[in-house]
Simulated assay, not measured.
Amino acid sequence: MKVIENAELLAPEPVISILCITFNQIDYIAGALDSFLAQDVDVPIEILVNDDCSTDGTTEVLLDYQRRHPDLFRIVTHEENQYSRGVSPMGQFLVPLARGRFIAMCEGDDYWTDPTKLRLQLHVMSERPEIAACVHANENVQAATKRRISTVRYAEGDCMIALADIVSRSQCYATNSLFVRAEAMRAYHGSAFFPLPADGDHKMLVHFGLIDGGIYYIDRVMSAYRVLSKNSVNRTMLLGPNTAKVAKRKHDNRVELLELADRETGGVYHDDIERGIDCIHYAYYRDIRDLKTLRARWPERLEMEGPLARIDLFLYTYARPLHKLALNVYCRL
C-alpha cells in the first residue's frame, strides 16, 4: 500500500473523513470527486480514495485531483488488486487511515447531489450523540446518462430505522448516504460481524442498527446510485453465468449474519430475527426468479412487489430470451 498525500497541507484534525473506493471507473470517478468538493460544510474534511490497481486511467484522474487539491485528497494505491485477494479495501486500508470523528462513504461510481448533505448529517449526529449513524433518501439513476429511474425513500419523514426493517431487509439505505461515527465504524471492524462473508452493507446495517446505537434516517434525497454501472458487483451478479450460485451464497451469508446477531443480542430480538430470516428465504427465491415457489409460499408478499419486479419475474419464467434481451439493452451491452 502507498499513500499519496501532502501531509503538511492537510487539515491536522479533520472532523469528517470521506472514504471512497474505486476500480476502473474512468467514466464515473470525476463525478464522485466533484460532488465531494461541492459540499458546503464549515468544518475541516479529508478525502481518502482507494484505487485498486485501475488500468483504464482512473488512477491518473485521482492523482490529478490530489495535485490540484493537496489540502484535501489522500490517494491509496497498491501493486496488486486487493479485491481479487479477498481483501476489503474500505476496512483494511481506508478506515484505519481515516482521521475524522465522522466517516462518510461513497463508492467511485456513485455521487452526492445535495451540497448540504454533510452539514445536515453532522447536525443530526451532534444533536443525537447516542446514535451510531445517519442516512438519507437517494435516487437510482441510469449509469451512463444519469437519468433518474426511481427515488428510494425508507420512510415518509425523518425517523429512526425500525428494528423490524433492520432484520428483514438487507439494506434500508444506499451506501453513499452513510454517515457514521468513526468509533462506531472501528467497533464494527473489530467485531465478530466484520469477518463474516455477508455483504458489507448488510453487516453494517445490522451492527449499527442492533448493536451500536441505531441509525437515523433523513427523508431528503441527497445522493445518486448508478444502477448496473460498469465493473459493479451487482452488474456482474445479474448478468453473469452463475447467478443462481451467487444468490444461494448471498442467502446463506445473510442467514449466518442474522443468527450471529441473535447470539450477540442474547436472543432479545429472536422472534423478529426469525421473521427476518423468512424474508431472506423469500429474497433468495425472488433473486433466482422461482415464480412457482414464490406464489406457493408467499403469495401476499409477491403481490406487494412493484410492477418492474413482477415484469422481471414474468419474463424470466415465460419468455427467457426476451428477458435476456431486455437486460442487455438496458445495460447498453
Rank of each mutant, 00 (worst) to 15 (best):
P307L: 06
I218R: 06
G157E: 10
Y285Q: 05
S126T: 14
M185Y: 03
L291S: 05
A247H: 11
S126N: 14
T265M: 07
L163E: 10
I161Y: 00
P241C: 02
V221Y: 05
V255T: 05
H202W: 07
Y225P: 00
N138C: 10
A104L: 14
E79L: 07
G100Q: 13
P115G: 11
S223V: 06
G57S: 05
R153H: 12
R286M: 12
A174I: 11
K250P: 02
H78C: 03
L196F: 02
E256Q: 14
L238M: 12
D34R: 10
I211S: 01
E79G: 15
D52V: 15
S168H: 01
R67H: 13
A7F: 07
V95N: 01
Y216I: 03
N242G: 02
L19Y: 03
G86C: 10
F314I: 01
A32C: 15
L163Y: 05
R249Y: 08
L178R: 00
F93S: 12
I75F: 02
K248F: 13
A198I: 05
L325E: 10
E183Y: 06
G306F: 02
R119P: 00
W112Y: 12
W298P: 01
Y330Q: 06
Y216T: 04
A326P: 00
L228A: 05
A283L: 09
V329T: 09
L257K: 05
K324W: 04
E156P: 01
R147D: 15
E80G: 02
G86W: 03
I288H: 09
M204V: 13
L205S: 09
P96F: 03
I311P: 00
R310W: 00
I18Y: 02
V95T: 13
R297D: 06
L37K: 04
D278T: 14
L178Q: 01
H202M: 11
A38L: 02
R235Y: 04
K245C: 09
P96E: 08
A319C: 06
N24I: 14
I211P: 00
C53P: 01
L62S: 08
F36G: 00
P14Q: 05
N140H: 11
S54T: 14
D52Q: 07
D34Y: 01
H323F: 06
A174F: 12
A319L: 08
V3F: 01
L10D: 08
L163W: 03
A7P: 07
P14I: 14
Y285D: 11
E13R: 15
R119E: 07
M185H: 02
L196V: 13
F179M: 13
H123D: 08
